[in-house]
């Protein structure tokens, strides 16, 4: 398994663990994020969870959710998202060697879905211990599993409400060594010990 063959904590190994977690799952998760804790052995210093890495898989039934695609708001929002993506794309392409994976305009001009956008803006977020779903999971040392539009919308956590606004129906945060693993889906997925065990196996490593 991945956990046995990759003993070291690095970006590549983290990405493979996130992939292994949702590519092999029966449920259709749209993404997995590892929120990395800044904490050290000094327990007096408050820890912050920041972006460690993420794997975006996408939604299975994307076409079902395109009801409002002709509204003016939708068009304006898409223009904004594509503009941001275009800028990010040129920044990334600019630092890569010529021909080494620059992304063409076709990909940028394709609709940027709500789930993709939620994943992208997640990269700008961080959570103090006890704040937001990931921070709360870390603070309580127990998994948080929120299924259903109403539960997400009614959550005290801004991130859960934001997820619901972008069409997600399930969001899960599972604490692990040095951070929190978060998964999101546009489907209704109910709590399973299978996923918890997988996270325990794949992410309980020490830096």
């Amino acid at each position: 398994g991945v956990g046995e063959t990759m003993p070291f904590f690095n970006q590549e190994s983290l990405q493979q663990r996130l992939q292994a977690l949702i590519d092999g799952a029966r449920e259709s998760w749209a993404y997995a994020i590892f929120w990395q804790s800044s904490s050290t052995s000094d327990f007096a210093t408050p820890s912050v969870l920041g972006w460690g890495d993420g794997y975006y898989k996408g939604e299975e039934n994307k076409n079902k959710r395109r009801a409002s695609s002709s509204s003016a708001n939708f068009v304006a929002e898409q223009e904004h998202r594509k503009k941001v993506l275009r800028e990010l794309n040129s920044l990334i392409s600019g630092v890569q060697a010529a021909g080494a994976g620059s992304v063409g305009d076709d990909a940028v001009d394709e609709e940027v879905t709500d789930t993709e956008w939620f994943f992208l803006i997640s990269m700008t977020q961080s959570f103090a211990n006890g704040n937001g779903l990931p921070g709360l999971a870390m603070y309580s040392s127990s998994p948080i599993w929120v299924t259903g539009t109403e539960k997400l919308a009614g959550s005290q956590c801004e991130r859960a409400r934001q997820a619901q606004g972008f069409g997600l129906q399930t969001i899960v945060c599972i604490p692990s060594a040095n951070g929190v693993v978060e998964l999101g889906s546009t489907e209704l997925i109910f709590e399973s010990s299978d996923l918890m065990n997988k996270v325990k196996y794949l992410f309980n490593f020490n830096i």
């Binding site: 972006w51 975006y56 794309n89 990334i92 890569q96 990909a107 990269m123």
Partner: peptide
């Protein structure tokens, strides 16, 4: 871009590259 931490930059590059693959294969 140098202000963007390495982890996010790598994740972003990967996301954009995979998005391109999804669009091409669609």
């Amino acid at each position: 871009l140098s202000a963007v931490p390495q982890a996010r930059r790598a994740s972003l590059a990967r996301f954009l590259e995979r998005r391109k693959e999804r669009v091409v294969s669609a």
